[in-house]
Design a protein around this nucleic acid. Structure first.
Ligand code: MN
Ligand code: MN
Ligand code: ZN
Ligand code: ZN
Lengths: 150, 150
DNA sequence: ACGCTTATTGCAATCCGTCGCATCTAGCAC
DNA sequence: GTGCTAGATGCGACGGATTGCAATAAGCGT
């Protein structure tokens, strides 16, 4: 216990303690990784980063914690159109939903916020009488640069 | 060779011969499964069904053929919000794109066709100057029935 | 501070998808 | 029909993700 772990708990840790979800050294490490990630980490990257904080973190704990975060709507799970293999990517859920676009040629990932997307979700809730908890729109295609060079 | 295999080739088989893609006994079986599927089969189900038509079909051939079909835009790959495990589901691509909704409580999968979805894709193509090849909108939440019984 | 209870963890076994390689076969030229 | 050749297949090995289980530790009551 080198440092007082309670300072700057971060939003994810705060959510855990509010909800009475048990906090462990391993979870603290994984949460910190997710909090500070610039974006779109896969499980292997998360494990590697978490091990740097707490070397005892095991692969299975990473998966279990990701599942927990997902269940609580704190992270989103993405395929990114499986551009780089079959695995999944994770990112901290932010205020506004965004669309992910993946270029099938150069592999670049782009994000896009759209009011029409919000309208669409409202339509689904109304017309299908379906209460939306999580949504994911992924698009594969060709980015401007790649279209230019054919 | 009990039956003449060339009759009623089906659209997928037709596409293959038009494009000069080699047709094998194993592919014929897998394509037949995809053609006749009512919907949303995972790889294990596809393998089992294909084996009934041609017992020699191997797991790896199923995956390789699914990848081929995907590359050619003939099938869509879905997560269905990972309601039943982490695997993927496959369905024959039809004329109009549709949204998939998965009930987090009863597991029911619903489909929905929406003009607003089409508008949204047009917006992405225009505003992001991105050429869309494939898109996938999946929504998790609660269906009418499950909302009723809370 | 200490002990109790129960959720969480690491580990090993297992399951599922992928890949390299030797063999086989579809499709074509004759 | 026969033989040729590139492409496809089955098989086995591999690597990533999941799960059961015994050991561990978080958090609470005292
Ligand atoms: Mn996926
Ligand atoms: Mn569908
Ligand atoms: Zn690109
Ligand atoms: Zn339901």
């Amino acid at each position: 216990m080198p440092l007082p772990q309670t300072e700057i708990p971060g939003r994810l840790q705060a959510y855990f303690s509010e909800r009475g979800i048990r906090m462990t050294q391993q979870r603290r490490a994984i949460l910190q990784v997710m909090e500070t990630a610039s974006k779109h980490l896969d499980a292997a990257q998360i494990l590697r980063k978490a091990k740097k904080i707490d070397p005892s973190v095991d692969r299975s704990t990473v998966y279990r914690t990701l599942k927990l975060l997902k269940r609580n709507g704190l992270i989103d799970e993405l395929d990114l159109m499986h551009i780089h293999g079959e695995g999944h990517y994770y990112e901290r859920k932010v205020n506004r939903d965004h669309i992910h676009m993946a270029c099938l040629r150069c592999g670049k990932i782009m994000e896009f916020v759209s009011d029409i997307f919000e309208n669409l979700k409202q339509q689904v809730e109304k017309d299908c009488r379906f209460k939306i908890m999580v949504s994911r729109l992924e698009i594969g295609g060709y980015c401007t640069a790649c279209r230019a060079q054919q």
